[in-house]
Amino acid sequence: MCRSWKWKRTVILLRCIDMKEKEAPEEESDFMRKMRMRGTCFLDLLFRKEERFFKDPFSNPYAATDDMLARLPRTLVITAGECDFRFEDEAYGLRLAQLGIETTIQRVPGAKHGFIPHFGQFWEPAARLIAEKIKEV
């Protein structure tokens, strides 16, 4: 395998999947409890209840150690303002920034979950931002 290339940038289009291992806070709202249950169901479907996939940092960036993440290139995180997972995605971007990774986090107000790959409202400005960030490399 050729190791002469180096990643120049990452673009995060998938939600970070950290809900499964979080402990529920004592004063969790009904809304957040439902969101946690929804996230757990999503992960069970995605990983077919195979923990080895959930714990693999190549399929779940939240399973990566800080040392692994610190080697990532500049990163763009785009979130949809109406997506239930925006907070986890933005927290992932902040984690990268705290590790010294040049990170751009852009929330698109009014956008719905999956708006970029499904060409939903506001997808064009987000796609332009992705293209701009790739061209910067």
Rank of each mutant, 00 (worst) to 15 (best):
S4G: 06
S4N: 05
K8Q: 09
R9N: 08
R9F: 09
R9T: 06
T10H: 13
I12F: 15
I12R: 09
L14R: 12
C16L: 08
I17L: 14
M19L: 03
M19K: 04
K20F: 08
K20A: 04
E21L: 10
E21V: 14
K22Y: 09
K22M: 11
E23K: 11
A24N: 03
A24W: 06
A24D: 01
A24M: 06
P25H: 02
P25T: 00
P25V: 01
E26S: 03
E28F: 08
D30H: 11
D30G: 08
D30P: 02
D30S: 06
F31L: 04
M32N: 07
R33N: 04
R33G: 02
R36C: 03
R36V: 08
R36T: 02
G39V: 07
C41G: 13
C41L: 12
F42P: 10
L43A: 02
D44F: 06
D44A: 04
L45D: 00
L45A: 05
L46D: 02
L46P: 09
F47L: 03
F47P: 05
R48P: 07
R48L: 12
K49F: 01
K49I: 01
E50S: 12
E50P: 09
E51Q: 11
E51M: 11
F53G: 11
F53K: 04
F54M: 06
K55W: 14
K55H: 13
P57A: 02
P57D: 05
F58V: 09
F58A: 10
S59M: 15
N60G: 13
N60H: 06
